[in-house]
Amino acid sequence: MRDLFWIFVSSMLVNNFTLVLFLGLCPFLGVSAKVATAVRMGMADIFVMVITSVTVSALNAWVLPHAPYLKIIAFIVVIASLVQIVEMVIRKVSPTLFRELGIYLPLITTNCAILGLALLQTSKGYGFTEGLVYAVGSGLGLTLALVLMASIRETVELASVPSIARNMGLVLIIAGSLSLAFMGFAGLFSS
């Protein structure tokens, strides 16, 4: 139980996927202009990460021990088809949720956070339960980073910023400051 708690805290704050491990930067920079879209993107991310984690546990248990060289290909194929299936199911079962998630679901397939989760979970040797906790923690951490970034950008939008900084440069420097702040969480583990 204690271990699971630390996996959760570590994946959400200390080793935050976006700000510390640099996974999933495209949505972080691309859809962080408004808080509402950032929240939806985060939700879609958590959802896909949980499903991926479960599938990867199954692959690790039964398939990959027999064919370790297929790791990368198996992961990417499974994730891509899974997202496709989930999209179809949601469209049929809950059209409202489908409209909410919209374009973000297919976008997630090529999001390195998902494949990164699969690879990290494998290299850390997490089983089913640990993997599930790790996926939820990472997903929440990703959402936290997205929402923080979106809130800051909504405010910066109204500020008078020099014209040369009106591109991604400013966003990256804000991200750097956030990342600096998240490094403080590393202290949680040394004590």
Binding site: L21, F22, M168, G169, L170, I173, G176, S179, M183
Partner: peptide
């Protein structure tokens, strides 16, 4: 990690 963001930010600026 923060250095990565800062470096690319300043290069883009």
């Amino acid at each position: 990690p923060p250095g990565g963001f800062f470096t690319l930010g300043f290069v883009l600026l």
